[in-house]
Amino acid sequence: MTYCVYTDKETLDPSPEHILPLSLGGHDDFVIDVDRKFNNDIGSRVDGKLANDFIVLFERDRAGAVGHSKKHPIPTVKNAKLTDGTPVQVKFGKDGLSLFDLRGRKNIERTDSRAHQFQCSNIKIDIDIDLMFVAKVALAAGYYAYGDDFVKNVQTDEFRKIMNFDKQNLPTDSIARVYSRSHEPEEGDDMIHILKMMTEIGSCSSVILAPSSETFGVAVSILGKFLGFISVPCKSSNLVNDRDYKYGHCIYIQNEQVKRFSLDYIRLKLLNQLEQ
């Protein structure tokens, strides 16, 4: 029997779960075991959806972040139109924008006068997927770093409510505090700004685990860009708080390595950077 932090149950069929998917800057050493069936479902419902988010595709293209398929991601609008009504596919690659005539089955040269403008109406961005993913990462990374103490002392069900977010039956009883890349922090809320800078200081994918006196906060970045933050109630006094865990724990996937530091160490690094 293996404990699965996603379902909060033991499973007879565990499988390794990349806490941050490879397609979003993860690493083969940053994994835990979870229930296979749930992992497959949540992987397509959350990880896959975020990895193919139109904005995220630009970061994946820039970083060359590929998943198990090894296919290089390119932001693509499959159904656009030129001003004369010609249906085209538009790709925003690192080498620039390219247009493909879907009717004539050929590339359109940038010198073509028709290529100066196009329109599209089918780009969809799910603003809820950010926090669903952050909640999922919070569960996995919290268990990876703190083990059973995380499950015993953190109100992990609050993360699960967000991870399993059902738009048809919106959870009304969540007491979590949340921010995503699309939300502006409240005026005077300096801690969110600091955590955001901490996630982005390494220009890589990262997870910041930040216990306070009564809460457990998790901030996540993918490919150097802040994605979101969630804080839930916690008995933080029962969590380890020294050495690599002083004030919290930080995990960065940088230069194809999993690097782990105390929150205090990253705080000092950030201060030094800001003073330069």
Rank of each mutant, 00 (worst) to 15 (best):
T2P: 00
Y3C: 04
Y3K: 06
V5P: 02
Y6C: 02
T7C: 14
D8G: 02
K9M: 14
L12P: 05
D13Y: 11
P16N: 00
E17Q: 07
H18L: 10
I19D: 04
L20F: 15
L20M: 13
L22V: 05
L22N: 04
L22A: 08
S23Q: 10
L24S: 07
G25Y: 07
G25W: 05
G25C: 05
D29H: 10
I32T: 12
I32P: 06
I32Y: 05
D33N: 14
V34F: 00
D35K: 01
R36S: 14
R36E: 15
K37H: 10
N39W: 07
I42P: 01
I42A: 06
V46G: 02
K49G: 00
K49M: 09
L50G: 06
L50Q: 02
A51N: 01
N52G: 05
F54M: 05
F54Q: 03
I55F: 10
V56T: 09
A63S: 15
G64C: 12
G67M: 10
P73V: 08
V77C: 05
A80L: 14
L82H: 04
T83I: 13
D84F: 08
P87F: 05
V90D: 05
V90M: 12
V90K: 11
K91W: 07
K91H: 11
D95F: 08
D101H: 11
L102F: 02
L102R: 13
R103K: 15
E109H: 14
R110D: 13
T111C: 07
H116D: 07
F118K: 03
I125L: 15
D128Y: 15
D130F: 13
M132E: 13
F133V: 06
F133R: 01
F133N: 04
A135M: 13
A138P: 09
L139W: 00
A145P: 04
Y146G: 09
Y146P: 07
G147N: 06
D149S: 15
F150I: 08
V151D: 04
V151P: 09
K152M: 14
K152P: 04
K152L: 14
T156A: 03
F159I: 02
R160K: 14
I162S: 02
N164D: 13
F165E: 00
K167G: 08
Q168C: 03
N169L: 12
L170P: 03
V178T: 12
Y179I: 10
R181C: 11
S182F: 15
E184D: 14
P185F: 10
E187I: 11
D189S: 02
D190T: 06
I194G: 00
L195H: 04
K196A: 08
M197P: 00
M198N: 03
M198W: 08
S203K: 13
C204M: 01
S205H: 06
S206K: 03
T215G: 01
T215Y: 13
T215V: 06
T215Q: 13
T215R: 15
A219E: 06
A219L: 10
S221Q: 06
S221D: 03
S221A: 15
I222K: 00
I222V: 10
K225Q: 14
F229S: 03
S231K: 01
S231A: 15
V232L: 08
K235A: 12
L239I: 10
N241T: 02
N241Q: 09
D244F: 05
G248H: 02
C250P: 02
I251R: 00
I253D: 01
Q254I: 10
F261N: 01
D264P: 00
R267L: 10
L270M: 10
L270F: 04
Q273A: 09
